[in-house]
């Protein structure tokens, strides 16, 4: 996915000299190609993220298209207010890239992990939020962000989990993308980012579940989500993000009080990463490993739920 990101950045900068890549002294190796191909459009703003976002706003006012790159723990978390006031309030077009979203930087601890970015940004108007699952979705969402007239945040999570699509999605701004769809499956998994890969693997072991990827968190295709959720027995949302304010919350807002089913949000369950370890260790610690979700999924899907009441559980 990072290679795709580099490619799409270089292509965008070559096509438009007003594209500027701003970084807060991050992006080692990732921007080698960009610096080689478009050195004049690469701006290292130093370890000064607040100023970087203000500068991006000033550049956008002057007709540039700034792409602001940082670790998601800092862009958007450290600069949330600058994003809100300097950029979004003034309806400026700036593209924010939050790299390493989720618990990718597992060994570095909670300071460099970010499972609250979607929740923090969702409430800010004039900002689209993308969460691509693989290199195809990355290209797709970046191109959508570039073509949009408003600001965007692109959440780049675990990048080496392989593709979930065989080709770039061929859809006209469609924001819910089918991954694995069966006839009349009564169960549904809606996943985003790194967890789409896990969802696909889980669904491959069963015959009664559909999997869709949600690369666009905002604006969310509410009607499409609603239609997908109708007449299901069980719905799971899967995300490497807090269960509060992320994809699961978005879906629950759409279906709550209307669609009767068993709905479970699976994500980071409101806790920090207490221990050090590799990515797989931490995902297991947060009960997001394949094995733990498989157990949960089997319990949920095989249980007999009382379908006469609306159960929306966190």
């Amino acid at each position: 996915m990072r290679a795709a990101f580099s490619e799409v950045l270089v292509a965008a900068a070559k096509a438009n000299p007003n594209v500027l890549l701003l970084t807060g002294d991050h992006g080692y190796a990732l921007f080698d190609a960009f610096r080689k191909e478009c050195p004049e459009q690469y701006v290292n703003c130093g370890i000064a993220e607040q100023n970087m976002v203000g500068v991006a706003a000033g550049l956008a006012k002057g007709g540039f298209l700034p792409i602001v790159y940082g670790l998601s723990a800092f862009v958007p978390m450290r600069v949330l207010e600058q994003i809100k006031i300097d950029v979004c309030y003034e309806s400026l077009k700036v593209i924010f890239i939050g790299d390493g979203a989720g618990v990718v930087y597992s060994h570095l601890g909670s300071s460099h992990q970010c499972v609250e970015d979607i929740a923090a940004l969702r409430a800010i108007p004039n900002l689209a939020i993308y969460s691509p699952a693989d290199r195809h979705e990355l290209t797709y969402t970046m191109q959508t962000a570039m073509a949009s007239s408003q600001a965007s945040y692109l959440r780049m999570g675990k990048a080496d989990l392989g593709d979930v699509h065989s080709t770039m999605p061929d859809s006209d701004m469609q924001t819910i993308l089918p991954i694995l769809v069966r006839d009349n499956a009564k169960n549904l998994i809606l996943a985003t980012g790194s967890m789409v890969s896990t969802a696909l693997k889980l669904a491959s072991q069963r015959h009664d579940v559909d999997v869709y990827s949600v690369p666009c968190i905002k604006p969310m295709a509410k009607n499409h989500i609603y239609e997908l959720c109708k007449n299901r027995d069980n719905i799971l949302s899967l995300e490497e993000h807090s269960i509060y304010g992320g994809l699961g919350s978005c879906i629950s807002e759409i279906i709550a009080g209307d669609i009767i089913c068993n709905f479970k949000k699976i994500g980071i369950n409101d806790k920090f990463s207490k221990y050090c370890g590799d990515y797989h260790y931490l995902m297991d610690y947060h009960e997001l490993s394949y094995q733990k979700i498989e157990t949960l999924l089997n319990n949920e899907f095989n249980a007999q739920h009382d379908s006469t009441i609306d159960i929306v559980r966190a």
């Binding site: 100023n51 203000g54 500068v55 706003a57 000033g58 006012k61 007709g63 600058q82 300097d86 003034e90």
Partner: peptide
């Protein structure tokens, strides 16, 4: 508030405006 004709930057939350101004100067 930058929505007012002639006001360049939405400020008041202190410490924002100079950065935006720096970005405008850098763009120029």
């Amino acid at each position: 508030d930058a929505h007012v004709p002639g006001v360049e930057v939405t400020s008041g939350s202190l410490g924002h405006g100079l950065s935006v101004g720096v970005g405008m100067a850098y763009g120029a």
